[in-house]
Every structure is written in C-alpha cells, then in structure tokens.
Design a protein around this nucleic acid. Structure first.
Lengths: 241, 241
DNA sequence: CGTCGATTTGAAATCTATCAACGATGGTGG
DNA sequence: CCACCATCGTTGATAGATTTCAAATCGACG
C-alpha cells in the first residue's frame, strides 16, 4: 500500500527486507479527496501522516486578501505533513489539484518505525531535505529566471519528478493544472503565464493543452530554463547503504 | 561554549539539566574566519557541524557566471551544515559577511547526543524547519512583495532575529552588509536597492548607514512590509516539554 | 440556449533593470 | 604625506519586462 513512498526511498537508499517489511506492516488507511479541496490547513495538527498515493496536490500559503501562493507541488510518493511531528502544527496548507488518494499513517507508529530503523529515519530526513532543495530552487527561479524561463523550469521539474515515478510516456505527461495554477506557483499573472505558454509553444519547446504536457524539445527546454536536475537528488552517486 | 545554540533551543524547548550537560560536554573547537570568506562550499563534506558563535554569514548558491544568490542569513546560534549528516554533502555554500567565530562539533558525537536525548533531537529538527520556514518566506517576499517591501521585510527579519538573541539596542542593530549584499539577498540590482533604501529613509521607516540599522518606526515598517513574525517560530505557544 | 470557468487579446501603466558616470571613502605603497 | 586604487554609494536617462484593466472568445455542461 505504501509502495510509492518505498519506491521513492529506494531511488536513494538500499532498504533491507526488514526495513521494507516495517513500512509495509504499518496500519494505513486510504483516504480519497475530491479535486480542488483544501484538506490540510495551516495550523492543523493532523494525527496521521499523509502520503500522496495518486493525484496532484500543492502546498500553499493563504493570505488575508484571499489569494494564495503555491510553494510546492506534491505527486505520488510525496509526504504532506512530515514536519508536524516536530513542529506540532502545519505551517502551510495543502490542497488537491486533482482527485487524490492519500495514505494515512498513524504518526506514533511511524515514529516508532523510524526510531527502530536508522535507514528509514535517514530516508525520511532525506525527503524533507529534498523538499527544501526544491524550495530553494523555486526561490532561485523567482529571482534569476525570466517569466518564460520560470514556466519552462516548472515543466522541466514536473518532467523529471514524474519520470522518477514512472508516469511519463515519451516526454508527455498528464498535468491537471490550469494556467491560474501556474500563476499561483510562479507569482506571475495568469495573463502573463498565458503569453509565456504561447511563446514556449511558438518556440516549439512544449505543448500544454487539455491537461496534457508534451515536451517537444527536451534539451532545448532544459537549456532555455537553465534546468539542472541535481537539486532533485536523483543521481545515485552518494548512495547510502 | 555552545551557549548561543542552547539559548536558541530554549526559546522553544524546556531542556533538562541532562540535555544541557550533554550539549555542553561536547568536545568543540572554536574556529575564526575572516570577513567575506567562503568557508563551506557546495559539494563539501565537512566533518564537523558548524554553529555560528559570533558574526554574520550567509548561505548562497553560486552560478557559473560567477554571480551568487544569497538564500539565507546566519547569525549567532544558527547551524551551517546540519543537513550534511543526512545528505552527505553541502548543497549550497556558506560565506562570512563579517569576521566570524564558528563552533565546530564532531559530527559523530553530535549524532550520539541526538540519539540519546530525544528533546535535543527534536530541537535540532526544529531549527531545520525554522530555516525552511524562513526560506518559504523569502520565496513569498520575492513573488508578492515590491522591491521596497522586500528590503523592508529583510530589515524586519533581522530586527526580530537579532532581538531574539539579544543584540538589538533600542531598535538599532549592527548589520555589516553592503548594499550589494542586500541585492544578492533580494535579487534586485544594487542601484535599485539603493533607491529603495532612500525611499525607506525618506518615509522615516529606517536608517541604514555605517553598517548600522536604526528602525525609526517599527509598526510602520512591519505594516508596510507585511511582516508577520509567526514564520520565525518565536512564540512559545506550542511549547514542547 | 445560457452560464461559468478558462483562455486569449490589446493597450496602457508601472516597476525594475540596464548602462554610464560620478563622488566619497579608506587602504596601500611609494 | 601623497598618489593611487578599489570598493561603496549615488544619480540620471533609457529600455525592457510584467502588471493592470478591460473585453472578447471558447468550450463544457446543465
């Protein structure tokens, strides 16, 4: 049941059978959430840890004026609320972008597993750092990249992250976002996002319609966006046994 | 020796005498670094954990074109390279902005302490989350705040963080940064930073000269910058014993 | 058919970068 | 002590990127 997470860990860690069994033996509940629902809010103290099993979601910060800013996307295998264990509360909110299934893990049980399995403990810390690294890259995007590059970079990030979980088909992938979602995630206006998408299309880098992305020129896109995947920690170089 | 870190922990956690003794018994070395030196580079695997004891430093990402982007500031009590334990290497660099003293803690010994003292383990995780929260706020700054607000927000952040370690005197504090440093940290040009500082001065919000910041109107500044200190986790609300 | 959300278009306003230059300052070496 | 140099801060003019505002189009769907 918890397989997307295990797969994610195994991109970087060599789990023992015992480790894997410990994760699999966790008593989980599958939770379905409809599309475009805020299901964890800033200030919440969820008693379960939630792992995305299917669907797309995002982390966001809500503002008094009713607007929100997306600070990260969640795809299958990503953990929504790992931090709650040490912080006590969510310091941002989570919202689904498509219909989603979440795996709920009792927080206590998970802590127990981490305490007894050093490799798993390390793996969980690692995914937290991965989130932070992505966040840092978003900051870089927002400061150093032009609007067009930012949008392009986002499509690269999706490409690589979705490839890693095996849901990319010939450089095409499903992406249930609206242009307004991209605007929340980049801080650009929807008008401008629209124009940037048109440009990327005209330059024959990507196509994005009907919730489907097709990368027409991967190298061209990555070069243009100044995308380096090292921040996603996908290489197995510093493998830790 | 390790007192700035202990003080930081104690803003949020109730350390037992045993916890405190465990930290104090660590075999540390004090390292002096001259101003404006890169002393930890992306890719490094430092064998010690470094805690700022005195001075100002920053985290930054270096780019092929020789420029750099600051992604966070370090003040006394902040940890430079906690992540190396789980990641194996630095995924960004650290540079001093003034003469600095760093406390070097053997990584193994620190891990041991964390393993045996759950509260300390939690405290270390907490400071990691604090860093991440600040990063998230920087992302928000860079997307939602005007240049002038960004600069103002940075001065608010310094004010509150420096207050927390007790080095603010009547809403004045020492800040050994150049306008170019502010530009690295905001992504603005130095020219524009200069103009924003002039505006803030003209609006009688702050004064910044000779490495000294004086906040002339705290409420006005915070309101203007849309600054809320909750992201700095300074409140003792969700105190964990 | 009408409505709603999403996308697209155009024109003007605003913000920030860019380029170029100048003044002040402090340190260094002669 | 002075001349020189480098760094920092300042100013002005212009170009470019992005937002803002307003409106049109499109498609899905009841």
């Amino acid at each position: 049941m918890i397989t997307p997470l295990i797969k994610k860990f195994e991109r970087r860690f060599l789990l023992s059978d015992v480790d894997r069994a410990a994760l699999e033996s966790l008593d989980t509940i599958l939770l379905q959430v409809r599309s475009r629902k805020s299901f964890l809010l800033e200030g919440d103290s969820p008693e379960y840890v939630h792992v995305v099993h299917s669907g797309f979601a995002c982390r966001y910060k809500a503002f008094p004026d009713g607007s929100r800013m997306t600070v990260g996307f969640l795809i299958p295998g990503d953990i929504c609320d790992l931090n709650v264990s040490t912080l006590g509360i969510m310091d941002h909110s989570i919202r689904t972008l498509s219909e989603c299934e979440f795996i709920q893990i009792p927080r206590e049980a998970l802590s127990g597993v981490m305490a007894e399995h050093p490799t798993l403990d390390r793996a969980f810390r690692w995914v937290a750092l991965l989130d932070e690294s992505i966040l840092r890259e978003w900051l870089i995007s927002s400061r150093r990249r032009s609007a067009e590059q930012q949008v392009a970079h986002l499509f690269c990030e999706f490409l690589v992250r979705l490839q890693a979980i095996g849901v990319v088909d010939q450089s095409s992938y499903h992406l249930p976002l609206t242009q307004a979602d991209l605007s929340d995630a980049t801080g650009l206006t929807t008008v401008h996002v629209n124009r940037m998408l048109q440009r990327l299309r005209r330059e024959e880098l990507i196509e994005f319609k009907e919730k489907n992305v097709r990368i027409l020129n991967i190298d061209g896109l990555m070069t243009f966006a100044d995308f380096r995947n090292s921040y996603l920690f996908l290489d197995h170089q510093s493998f830790i046994a």
